[in-house]
Amino acid sequence: MKRVVVLVEGQTEEALVDEVLAPAALARGVHLAPVIVITSATPAGARRGGGSWRHYDMRLRNLFKASHLHRVGLLIDYYQYPRGAPGCDVGGSGPARQSELMARLHKQYPDSRFRPLVVLHEIEALVLAAIDAGRGEGLIPARGLTRLRREIARAGGPERIDHGPSTAPSKRLLRADPGYLKTVTGPLLVAEAGLSAVLARCPTFAAWWEDLLS
């Protein structure tokens, strides 16, 4: 069985990989596991997620040393792309800048197994896709769902929902439901919608997913 790991930046991504992506990968003969970046360690324990790029760099280089791994993936948000990351000073916006960021990542880490994805614009785009697919009733207030679906349609799809302090996907979800739990509600909605329905609405993520499992 192929063994694949995906380095993720936070607990939301970790939960989505564990609860949604890993079971789908297993059905295709791939053992998929998330590895969450550790940004610091204190006597109280490790602090996980976010932080500067050096923590990702260290973890990636260690993963590339594992010869038994078939693929080494990376999931990182376009919004708040880490300081110090390859291409962080690249100008532009949207898919064009996303492509350039991923090109810079490949150049920095030329291992043939490396499969990075700079997610447009946050991993919560998958949750918006699940909502667009008809999920969310009973979990998100009806008025909030209506507004989110209208915003998705206006943008032209979940991956086109823009980034910013007040317009990023995660911020829109919190506006729709102040009680929204990123690590609970999000993965639950994606699982309920089904991965195929979500991927159909997130073509960039879908292309990365197929490449990761190939």
Rank of each mutant, 00 (worst) to 15 (best):
M1F: 04
K2A: 03
K2T: 00
V4Q: 03
V4Y: 02
V5R: 00
L7S: 00
V8S: 02
E9I: 02
G10D: 15
G10I: 09
T12D: 08
E13C: 05
E14S: 08
E14G: 02
V17R: 02
D18Y: 01
E19D: 11
V20K: 01
A25C: 06
L26M: 08
A27Q: 15
A27F: 09
P34E: 03
S40R: 13
T42R: 14
P43A: 10
A44K: 14
G45P: 13
R47P: 14
R47A: 06
G51M: 07
S52W: 06
R54D: 14
R54T: 11
N62P: 10
K65F: 00
A66W: 08
A66I: 09
L69Y: 06
R71P: 02
V72G: 10
G73C: 06
G73Q: 11
L75I: 04
I76T: 09
D77V: 03
D77R: 09
Y78V: 01
Y78C: 03
Y78E: 06
Y79D: 05
Y79P: 05
P82V: 03
P86A: 04
D89H: 11
G94C: 04
G94L: 03
G94H: 04
P95E: 07
A96I: 07
S99Y: 05
S99G: 10
L101F: 07
M102S: 03
A103T: 12
K107A: 15
K107Q: 13
S112G: 10
F114S: 06
R115Y: 01
R115G: 03
R115S: 14
P116Q: 07
P116N: 07
L117I: 10
E124D: 09
L128F: 01
D132M: 03
A133D: 11
G134T: 04
G138H: 02
L139E: 11
P141E: 14
A142I: 04
A142R: 14
R143F: 02
R143A: 15
T146R: 13
R147D: 05
R150D: 03
R150K: 14
E151R: 10
I152G: 04
A153V: 07
R154D: 12
R154P: 07
A155G: 00
G156C: 00
P158E: 08
E159A: 00
I161L: 02
G164A: 05
P169M: 07
S170R: 08
R175T: 13
A176G: 08
A176T: 04
D177T: 07
G179C: 05
G179L: 02
L181P: 12
T183A: 15
G186A: 14
G186N: 04
P187M: 11
L188H: 12
L189S: 15
V190C: 12
V190G: 09
A193Y: 08
A193D: 12
L195W: 04
V198P: 11
A200K: 15
A200L: 13
R201E: 07
R201K: 14
C202Y: 01
F205W: 11
E210Q: 15
L212A: 00
S214H: 06
